[in-house]
């Protein structure tokens, strides 16, 4: 049963299984295990980034396509919800319309980019996606009347998803709409992740891996490589847009910095590489480690710097303001020691 849910793609490592189960349990019970606004924010961000990173892994890890337009698709989904909620008002229908239109717009844009540029060499495709993504980011900033420009958009979502909606208490935790919102994000992320896992283990997924390995031979045995690459780009874009919609529902705000920035694109790349490309489960570990580091490394360093007070040099190195440097060091170390990512390393058993 469990194997069927995982599409036959089991973790294939005892440690990895334990880690994944721990992540699943922690995320499933996050509102009760880690009460508090910040913890819930972190848990929701992890859920959304798992989907976003997994959808990028479909492109980079499984198909061998380097794209810098992934945040653009993420942003399309987010702005879809924001615009629909702004213009249609606070309703479930607005969320549905916004989510669907964001995903469709992302898929159509990916189709256009794919058909025009996936025939060229990989480096040119990467450059084209970078150019398109930059153009869209500029456009969103400039079209102030529609997108809110640099300030972004703030909007209302159905009351049942907001903290104002209260409906009791469980295990000492006040139940409110924010928890419903979290479970909406959690459930949708879980379904989307399992869907991606199914896609990469489907006949289609096998073709993508063949194309990544040897596109020349894939073509020679009858696969129309450009079609498959384009389809993978569209699927990946649509899922990224759905992740963007979830983010917009969770935050009740969208802006260029939260959805379209190049920094997010770099974060996604780092998460894929740290977790392990072409594994899907790598997206889970990569997102968990990275988001936790982003949210808690600074605080941890503050505690460590306090503990090391009086010692030479160490408090300076552990200054909370230097958290980005340590994040960079962590990344370099992980690439050095786990070139195939954490999942690759755990699966190889070495």
């Amino acid at each position: 049963m469990l194997t069927a849910i995982l599409s036959g793609d089991t973790p294939r490592s005892r440690i990895l299984t334990v880690l994944l189960l721990a992540v699943l349990v922690c995320l499933a019970a996050a509102p009760f295990l880690f009460p508090g606004v910040r913890a819930l924010e972190t848990a929701a961000t992890i859920c959304i980034f798992i989907v976003l990173v997994a959808s990028y892994d479909l492109l980079l890890g499984y198909t061998g396509i380097v794209s810098f337009a992934h945040t653009m698709f993420f942003g399309l989904g987010a702005y879809g919800v924001a615009l629909a909620s702004t213009h249609l008002g606070r309703s479930w229908g607005a969320l549905l319309v916004g989510t669907a239109s964001g995903a469709v717009a992302a898929a159509v844009l990916a189709l256009l980019i794919g058909l025009f540029s996936l025939r060229v060499r990989a480096i040119f495709f990467a450059m084209i996606t970078l150019a398109v993504a930059s153009a869209v980011a500029v456009l969103v900033s400039q079209l102030f009347e529609i997108t809110g420009g640099e300030d972004g958009l703030t909007y209302q979502i159905p009351r049942a998803l907001t903290p104002a909606f209260r409906f009791g208490e469980l295990f000492g935790v006040n139940l409110n709409g924010r928890i419903i919102n979290y479970y909406l994000v959690f459930a949708a992320s879980l379904v989307l992740f399992l869907l991606l896992l199914r896609i990469v283990n489907s006949p289609f997924g096998r073709v993508l891996q063949a194309i990544r390995e040897n596109d020349f031979r894939a073509e020679a045995i009858g696969y129309r490589v450009v079609w498959y690459r384009t389809a993978a780009t569209c699927l990946s874009a649509a899922v990224a847009a759905l992740a963007g919609s979830l983010y917009a529902i969770w935050l009740r705000y969208v802006g260029p910095d939260t959805t379209l920035s190049f920094e997010i694109m770099l974060d996604i790349l780092l998460m894929v590489v740290i977790g392990g490309m072409g594994t899907m489960y790598g997206a889970v570990l990569g997102a968990v480690i990275f988001v936790l580091a982003q949210n808690y490394l600074q605080s941890l360093m503050g505690v460590a710097a306090g503990a090391a007070e009086g010692l030479p040099v160490l408090p300076l190195l552990l200054d909370p303001n230097r958290w980005l440097m340590w994040l960079g060091i962590l990344f370099i170390l992980s690439v050095y020691f786990f070139p195939t990512g954490i999942v690759g390393r755990l699966r190889s058993g070495r």
């Binding site: 599409s7 036959g8 199914r198 896609i199 283990n201 489907s202 006949p203 289609f204 997924g205 096998r206 073709v207 696969y223 498959y228 389809a231």
Partner: peptide
């Protein structure tokens, strides 16, 4: 069968 998306290859 290359475009089968929802069945597993296995």
């Amino acid at each position: 069968k290359g475009f089968g998306l929802l069945s597993t290859a296995a």
